[in-house]
Write a protein that binds this DNA or RNA. Structure first.
Lengths: 129, 129
DNA sequence: AACTGTCAACGACGGACGTCGTAGATGCCC
DNA sequence: GGGCATCTACGACGTCCGTCGTTGACAGTT
């Protein structure tokens, strides 16, 4: 439990809901998932997932009330960093610039995105010196 | 089989070997994995993986000789793009700039890497206009 | 021809994952 | 208090993944 393992696909989908809505009940997560997701998962499936995630330390559970409330244990940024680091090591030989190169090659790297990226790069450089 | 599924962790490790060495026998892949990897996988494990990957269309097999020769079916860049796209959608809401932001926040984004990234950005912009 | 080594093929197995059904506890309403 | 809804807990199941042992074919050696 010191460092929770990386979330699986289904677990990550749940974490996204928790990051967006904040601490939520199983029901709220389930309904939000139903709205967003194309796939249709049952209530008990979401419950089971959240129980597993509690076990793994991915979420924290408040059981003071009869209806438990779940909250993401790690921030979205932290989780994104961990996941990207993992993929970077496994598929890009640990090269950040290769990752950026691939990100740029995607259609969704729109004009606004490019401007945003350039701003990030400037900030990063300024902070670095 | 038109579009092969995404490689799993173990499969990706094998693909990395094939990209580096070019078309190779099971033995060569196995030995290369033994050198690089900390983990120690058996010969038949690598064989089985490669057989599965042939089934999935991730690699192509030349059986003209008794000792088969395997080759990656998709380029490294293409695979990297698919994998990054998937993670981008699942964890970053499809935002390329978020991915770049996280990539920059990593220790390994060294000075040379930053210069490389800036060059990529310039090229991309020049090509875009 | 017998032995030895290498190779592909196949089957099995344990674990993780996502799925859900069912049971049991708790709360609410008439 | 009886009945209904809601919630958690538990167990099961099918699938995929990575792992490996075993078997049988083939080739080279003596």
């Amino acid at each position: 439990m010191p460092v929770p393992p990386q979330p699986t696909r289904a677990e990550l989908a749940i974490l996204r809901v928790l990051w967006q809505l904040g601490p939520s009940t199983v029901r709220r997560v389930h309904e939000s998932l139903r709205d967003t997701q194309d796939k249709d998962t049952g209530y008990t499936t979401v419950l089971k997932l959240l129980q597993n995630m509690t076990e793994k330390g991915l979420v924290q559970r408040d059981e003071s009330e009869r209806t438990h409330v779940y909250e993401a244990a790690l921030s979205q940024k932290r989780t994104q960093r961990d996941l990207l680091r993992d993929l970077m090591d496994r598929a890009f030989g640990g090269s950040a610039s290769s990752v950026v190169a691939q990100a740029l090659s995607m259609k969704r790297a729109s004009a606004e995105e490019l401007a945003e990226i350039r701003k990030l790069l400037d900030e990063h450089e300024r902070r670095g010196k």
